[in-house]
């Protein structure tokens, strides 16, 4: 009994014969609007405030050799309403294509029931940067329920399957999950030449996956520090040789498979 919006927006980026990316499809659907700027395609409108009952879908297609960056104009505020709200992003990136998805944070407002799903299919040599940030409630407010799932396959093979389920405070506030942090975020990088050694510091983990990819996860008391930690993590992940360890050779990586 969905009474909310059910918009379907889509963006397709394709490389032309000269290798330049052209946006061959830029479909806004009612309240879920996409706007092209010289640097990125921006999500505007309903994406910024899904109400319970809304069912938003966004399709992103990056053709072989094409480049696409997605940003948003404002923080997304997940609000209560009639039932669960859904935001589903499906992305596919072709050979040598590059997708950089980094919208502003989502705030899980009091009483919301929001489910965010992202499915990304990458060709074998596609490049990805995917950032998600979540704020647990507006200032001084207990958050609603927020469930997210992120499934990434590379050449059909699972690369990352990652859920964050903020349902039961006894679970997510525990020392195993968020340890009482008010914000949590991650950046997934799929690229060649990423660091293969893990790194940790307060509230930040740089985690090389079994596949050639790095997941950066961070928790923080506020969104400013969260963004800073993720940025630090990304810088470290892209610094191939950590200062205190020799660069891993192919042989050592093969000898220590994840």
């Amino acid at each position: 009994m969905t009474r909310g919006y059910a918009p379907r927006a889509a963006v397709t980026a394709e490389a032309d014969a000269s290798g330049r990316t052209r946006l061959t499809r830029l479909r806004s659907d009612g309240p879920l609007a996409v706007r092209a700027t010289p640097d990125a395609v921006y999500l505007v409108g309903a994406a910024a405030s899904p109400l319970g009952g809304d069912d938003l879908k966004l399709d992103l297609t990056v053709g072989p050799g094409a480049v696409l960056a997605i940003r948003s104009s404002a923080t997304t505020l997940a609000l209560p309403g009639a039932g669960e709200s859904h935001m589903t992003v499906h992305a596919s990136v072709g050979a040598a294509g590059r997708l950089d998805y980094a919208p502003e944070p989502t705030v899980a407002a009091r009483g919301c029931r929001h489910r965010a799903t992202a499915v990304v299919d990458l060709a074998a040599d596609a490049t990805l940067r995917w950032r998600e940030e979540l704020i647990l409630g507006r200032h001084g407010e207990a958050p609603g329920r927020h469930m997210s799932r992120f499934d990434v396959t590379c050449n059909g093979r699972p690369l990352l399957r990652h859920e964050l389920i903020l349902d039961d405070p006894a679970v997510y506030n525990s020392a195993a999950v968020l340890a009482g942090a008010r914000t949590v975020g991650s950046i997934l990088l799929v690229d060649s030449n990423l660091r293969r050694e893990p790194h940790t510091e307060d509230g930040l983990a740089v985690l090389p996956l079994a596949e050639p990819a790095v997941l950066i996860t961070a928790t923080a008391p506020d969104s400013t520090l969260l963004r800073r930690r993720l940025h630090t993590g990304e810088t470290i992940a892209r610094t191939q040789t950590p200062p205190d360890t020799p660069a891993p050779t192919l042989a050592t990586i093969a000898a220590h498979p994840g």
Partner: peptide, 12 residues
Amino acid sequence: AASAPVLDLDAE
């Protein structure tokens, strides 16, 4: 695929 970010951080 429920994650536990602090568990991951502490493990490393």
